[in-house]
Amino acid sequence: MAKKSPGEQGEPSFEQRLARLEQIVAKLESGDVGLDESLRLYTEGAGLIKDCRKVLAEAEKRIARLTEDAAGKLSTEPFEPKEEAGGAEEAGA
């Protein structure tokens, strides 16, 4: 975690996936697609829903604290906020 830059590029973002999904649904709803095309769209849409659900279910709880050395070089280290004495809520390490 410390080395990896958060928010990897490359794979489409949640937002892009959702936008594509909306596009597919609208196209299927128009009914203006052939059998092969509609099957392909449906499969793609089902995959996108699965991906999006996976993101929603994800709970990696990656909390990092930024540090900067004398040379101005940035790095991150895991961070868990301290609970106040008697704090009722669970931090869930």
Binding site: L28, V33, S38, L39
Partner: peptide, 16 residues
Amino acid sequence: ALGNLQARLARGMKHV
């Protein structure tokens, strides 16, 4: 919203 999209996807496919 995703559930809604999923239902619409299935309905759209059924429609086709």
